[in-house]
Computed example of a mutant assay.
Amino acid sequence: MIAKEYVLQMARYNAWQNSQLRKVVKQMDEADLTADRGAPFGSIFGTMNHILWSDMNWMGHWCSDVPSPAVPKAASATLTPTYGVWDAERFRLDGRICIWAQTLSNVDLQGMQSCSSGENKQQISRSVGVCVTDMFNSQTYHRGQISQMLSGAGITLPVSDLMFLPEDA
């Protein structure tokens, strides 16, 4: 389904997008960052936390050195207490995702991934390629929610088009 080159590009894209997001939200005051905007995870910060939670959850399946999130999915919007803690965790995990992507082979992406969904009370098994695609797709989907909230707050959005991903990112 997917190849290592796709994973490498998506890992770089994820890190680039999060770097741009960090620069934008760093300028916001805490009240604006944590204001409930009617989004599924409440605020911009809550959605940022949910993305981090989801990435930790997936990477915990593939990398023994990535701990599972300390809170259940229902509390993912509260994963980190402050922007500073989120920023450090996001930077660290983005680097880990890039290193992981470099170590993959195309064969690794063909295997099966089994996991249980606490939310749906189901055990599922899918190809690793589908799971990896889901991780990157979910990141993009939720960053789109953040973009909508930032736009609604009158904040200029960073470039998000994959075609503008810098070669050195």
Rank of each mutant, 00 (worst) to 15 (best):
I97E: 00
Q102K: 15
R126P: 00
L93T: 04
K23E: 15
L93Y: 04
W62D: 09
S68K: 14
C115A: 13
Q110F: 00
P69N: 04
M149R: 03
A35P: 00
T82P: 06
N106D: 15
R90I: 03
V25M: 13
V85A: 08
D94S: 07
Q113N: 12
C98W: 00
H142R: 12
D94R: 02
G84Q: 14
A35W: 02
V25Q: 05
K73R: 13
H50T: 06
W53T: 01
E119M: 15
G144Q: 10
N49G: 04
I155K: 11
V132M: 13
T82S: 13
I155T: 08
M48D: 05
Y83N: 02
G38P: 01
R126Y: 08
V24C: 05
R37A: 07
A77Y: 02
S64Y: 00
Q123A: 10
T78Q: 14
D32R: 14
N106P: 03
Q139P: 00
I97P: 01
N57R: 13
G84D: 15
E30Y: 00
D32Q: 14
Q139E: 10
P69D: 05
A75G: 01
R143V: 05
S54A: 15
M112I: 07
H142I: 09
V85I: 10
S151C: 11
M59Y: 02
D134N: 11
T80Q: 11
D55W: 01
P67T: 09
Q123L: 13
T47F: 09
W58C: 04
I124Q: 08
R22Q: 13
M48V: 12
G118M: 06
Q20W: 05
R37M: 13
G60C: 10
Q148K: 10
W100R: 06
G154L: 09
S125N: 11
W53E: 01
I44S: 01
V85D: 09
W62A: 14
A77W: 02
S76H: 02
D87N: 12
V71F: 12
F45V: 04
D94K: 04
V130H: 08
I97S: 01
S54Y: 07
Q122C: 05
Q113V: 07
N106A: 08
M28F: 09
K23A: 14
W86D: 05
K73L: 07
G154Q: 09
K26W: 01
H61M: 10
G111M: 09
T82K: 06
V24I: 13
L150I: 03
P40I: 11
G152N: 14
T78H: 11
Q102N: 15
T80W: 00
E30A: 07
N49V: 02
N49P: 04
D29N: 14
T78V: 02
L93N: 06
T133C: 11
L150E: 00
G144T: 06
D134Q: 15
G46T: 04
T80P: 00
E30T: 11
Y83V: 07
D55M: 03
L150Q: 03
K23P: 01
G42Q: 03
M112H: 07
M135Y: 05
G111L: 10
A39E: 02
I155H: 05
T140L: 06
T82A: 06
M112K: 12
A74L: 13
Q102S: 12
S117Y: 04
C131H: 02
I97G: 01
M135I: 12
D29M: 07
N57D: 09
A75E: 15
R96E: 08
S68E: 10
R143P: 02
Q123V: 10
